[in-house]
Amino acid sequence: MPTVTMTVNGKKVSGEVEARTLLVQFLRENLHLTGTHVGCDTSQCGACVVHVNGDSAKSCTMLAVQADGADVVTIEGLANGDELHPMQAAFKEHHGLQCGFCTPGMVMSAVDLVKKNPKATEHEIREWLEGNICRCTGYHNIVKAIQHAQQTM
């Protein structure tokens, strides 16, 4: 079995995996980082979004071996100790989550957006979220939260 080594949330980790292991499986099953979720099997829902080398990516659509040597950040690595990341804080402030299942992917995607397009309009925010499906919030408060984080990030 191949061995993969990568940096996850600032820590160097490695593990033996079958080549067919998805990055999300490696995170959840080998590293017990269960904050990254799997909500579909067609690479559309975005519950599994993490950052790979600084860009948001679907960890269900990437093999763990493809992330060998990469710098991966998951939802667990976003906060600074007990202090929420501004995007996390904005989601709480604006009630941008309900059941919480899509939330990790949504937050990771939103952080990437604000990094790349800090002044995104509401329309651009909604388009960016094309790869993240939420069934609870109707997106209304997610958009508000991201707009808030544009000010605080």
Binding site: D55, S56, K58, T61, D112, G131
Partner: peptide, 9 residues
């Protein structure tokens, strides 16, 4: 194309 995450990969 696709969504932002697809475009990143």
């Amino acid at each position: 194309i696709g969504d932002p995450q697809v475009r990143n990969r």
